[in-house]
């Protein structure tokens, strides 16, 4: 299978994008906070934005190479782009939108492709409607069909679910996953949602302020994010700076704790992270304890979450998601197993 090989730099209005990655994954996720350069990266790959320097290769095709002065126009890249809001043409019906990328094909071929996509994306009966007459989910399915119609080598998905409500979002996610399984090419999904990234993507690129913060196989990255930004984006809420204290020890002043990682602390580690569900009331003689005060409870239908201060009057917060019902009385200390502590770099 063809791979995607990207290394680009671009400066735009005080923001600098400098990102490199190489992937063969069926679906690569680009995860990052808003304004981290996710969409800029995607637009550069699509060719609707020109980088300043670098290269973009897709399989054995060069889409962009500043050194060789190659910059294919978007029309010739064979790259599909699914926009956040679908960007369906308001002046065209669903069928016309689906056929919009089929210029130059025979009428019969157009009709067959449209009919096939209408069936696959559950749009039958809507062919003659205009985009404004469709629901958000239908619009996004039609937009997905329009991208797929010309059979692109690469599919770029720019936060395709963000304009939908939570219920529709999961439905469309399942639909998209099924579609991607049948799709012959690669896909890149830009998102700020870790659930979407986890469910759809084999590999994950974490961007932070225009730079690559972490990159790797999705599940491995969720297990061991490696960087502070990746830890935040994969759902680790308890992150605090500290310093190595020799051997396997690390001191975290904010938590008033000296924690044992059970393994030598690598050089360059600046922060520790602990996931809320990895905290527990300490067992008899267990180490790695953090004092917790001033609890606040956030009730959820399924599971309650607690917010503590590690010290009386402290501004910093410690989040805990207990397994099962809340213990009573609430613990004054929480512990974490050495293997559950994430060692992070800035």
């Amino acid at each position: 299978m063809a791979g995607l090989d990207v290394s680009i730099r671009k400066e735009l209005g005080g923001f600098a994008l400098d990102v490199s990655f190489q992937t063969g994954a069926k679906c690569l996720g680009i995860l990052g906070a808003s304004g981290c350069g996710k969409t800029m990266t995607l637009r550069s790959i699509a060719g609707v934005l020109s980088p300043d320097r670098g290269y973009i290769r897709l399989g054995d095709r060069v889409l962009y190479d500043s050194a060789a002065r190659i910059d294919l126009p978007p029309q010739r890249r064979r790259v599909g782009y699914l926009f956040q809001n679908g960007a369906l043409f308001p002046n065209m019906t669903v069928a016309e939108n689906l056929a919009a990328g089929l210029g130059g094909r025979s009428r019969q071929e157009k009709e067959e492709t449209v009919a096939r996509l209408v069936g696959k994306l559950r749009l039958s009966g809507l062919e003659g409607r205009y985009p404004r007459q469709l629901s958000g989910g239908q619009q996004q399915r039609a937009a997905l069909g329009r991208c797929l119609a010309p059979d692109p080598d690469l599919l770029l998905l720019d936060e395709p679910f963000s304009a939908l409500d939570a219920c529709l979002r999961e439905e469309l996610l399942l639909e998209l996953r099924r579609t991607l399984e049948e799709y012959r090419g690669l896909a890149v999904l830009v998102t700020h949602s870790r659930e979407e990234a986890f469910r759809l993507c084999g590999e994950l690129l974490v961007l932070d302020r225009g730079r690559r913060s972490a990159f790797g196989e999705t599940r491995a990255l969720f297990r061991d994010p490696g960087t502070v930004q990746a830890a935040i984006l994969t759902g680790c809420r308890n992150i605090a700076p500290g310093e190595r204290a020799g051997g396997s020890l690390f001191r975290v002043p904010e938590w008033n704790a000296l924690l044992d990682l059970g393994r030598p602390v690598p050089e360059g580690i600046t922060h520790l992270g602990v996931r809320p569900r990895d905290l527990h009331p300490p067992g008899e003689g267990e180490g790695n304890r953090v004092g917790v005060f001033c609890p606040d409870i956030l009730e959820d239908p399924a599971r309650d979450r607690l917010v503590f201060s590690p010290e009386e009057g402290s501004q910093s917060r410690l989040w805990w998601e207990p397994e099962g019902p809340l213990p009573s009385p609430l613990p004054r200390e929480l512990a974490v197993a050495p293997e559950d502590i994430l060692a992070l770099r800035e």
Partner: peptide, 27 residues
């Protein structure tokens, strides 16, 4: 006219003239 519509048209292989006729002008 939403710039995304034009960019969407470009990634769909529409020439600038086709974009003008079929997307920019009608909208």
């Amino acid at each position: 006219v939403d710039r995304d519509l034009l960019d969407a048209g470009r990634t769909l292989g529409m020439s600038e003239w086709t974009l003008f006729r079929r997307v920019l002008l009608p909208n």
